[in-house]
Design a binder for these strands. Structure first.
Lengths: 203, 203
DNA sequence: ACACCTCTAGAACGAACGCTCTACCCAATG
DNA sequence: CATTGGGTAGAGCGTTCGTTCTAGAGGTGT
């Protein structure tokens, strides 16, 4: 038993929340999947199911964040970087049998009405991811205003395409937004190497 | 009591599924919200909870479809039509207190692993909506290939922006994709009226 | 040796779940 | 008037839910 019980609980809960949502996932199921007992779960998480979920969502958020960061670093050009994201997401999604999509969306949608910690955790995750994309765009030379708007759009499109791909059990939606987002991003980039008279920028 | 009991059940179930997902919504809650009794629910839907959900999702799908159609008809220009969509979605979302987003996403995500009728119903809804957008783009003069790719992207972006807007309780994500999608769509349109030498099309 | 603390183990509780069942109301039909 | 059948009403079934509780295992410090 190399991994701690707590970690096993968090990892198992993250996977189950991603696949079945918050209400669809039982504490006992989490314990079983983590090869832990109910006592252990409540020992590490006295806050009960919600506390487990928050920890699991944070874990999933970080994992997805590094996946995003890695994909974005695959290319210097922001447009290519975005398609690298969609390619990676599509591959992982297919490999999981279309079940492991965004780690927070399901839980987020189920707890919309409430003002639970879960809600806040999901919102934080989305904003953090958007920040990653925005930074990439800024490094690519976009203006702060353009980068903000575009990053928000890219994240929304990724989220939506992930859902669409899962429901249709197809990589196509992700590849489509990959192509279109690349085109959109390119429309912002200052292409100094092109032939058609780039606008002169005052030094 | 002007509306039939069956209709009240479907409408109530649709609203609850939209807000709380499939597992989060109980049959008894549906009955109560619809001012019907459990007996009535099982009388009209011998298939039980899943049958109610399928009918409700179909209802929600149609309602969202007409909303989409109306928005798209607000402008002849496809780019403007898309921003009309995001504007309408943003307004409705705020008006509902950020709770009434896409009527099928929550249920779709919860039932991903299964091969239930619910899954299929959600997939049908998404594809139908994508068809509406594609037709609009085609009417706008885009090539079939471009229209297909773009329609898929637009729908994904709308779905994702809706979720992001709900989680952040803000219209901004929707407006951002509205702006960006308009720019993207415009990049495909043949602008005969612009000054910078439009490509000559053989008559 | 003992007490102490972290962690494991699972029985048990009340509440809520989806669903089945019987009983009843009431308008239409013979 | 009696009968039928669509629709209403809700008690109750077995199961599962999240949570609480007590009991014990295993290691550490004194």
């Amino acid at each position: 038993m190399q991994t701690s019980t707590r970690d096993r609980i968090v990892v198992a809960a993250a996977r189950l929340l991603q696949r079945q949502g918050y209400v669809g996932t039982g504490i006992k199921q989490i314990a079983q999947e983590a090869q832990a007992t109910l006592g252990s779960v409540y020992h590490f998480f006295p806050g009960g199911k919600e506390a487990v979920a928050v920890a699991a969502l944070r874990h999933g958020s970080e994992k997805f964040g590094t996946l995003l960061r890695e994909s974005l670093d695959e290319a210097d050009d922001p447009a290519e970087a975005v398609t690298a994201c969609t390619r990676r997401l599509a591959g992982d999604l297919r490999a999981s049998g279309w079940t492991d999509g965004c780690p927070v969306t399901a839980a987020a949608l189920e707890t919309l009405g409430t003002d639970s910690e879960i809600q806040r955790t999901c919102a934080e995750a989305l904003n953090e991811w958007e920040g990653l994309i925005r930074d990439k765009l800024l490094r690519g030379g976009l203006s702060p205003e353009d980068a903000r708007d575009l990053a928000s759009t890219v994240l929304s499109a990724l989220e939506g395409a992930e859902v669409t791909a899962q429901v249709n059990r197809s990589e196509e939606p992700l590849h489509a937004v990959g192509r279109q987002l690349a085109r959109l991003v390119r429309s912002y980039e200052v292409r100094v190497e092109t032939a058609w008279s780039p606008p002169l920028r005052p030094r």
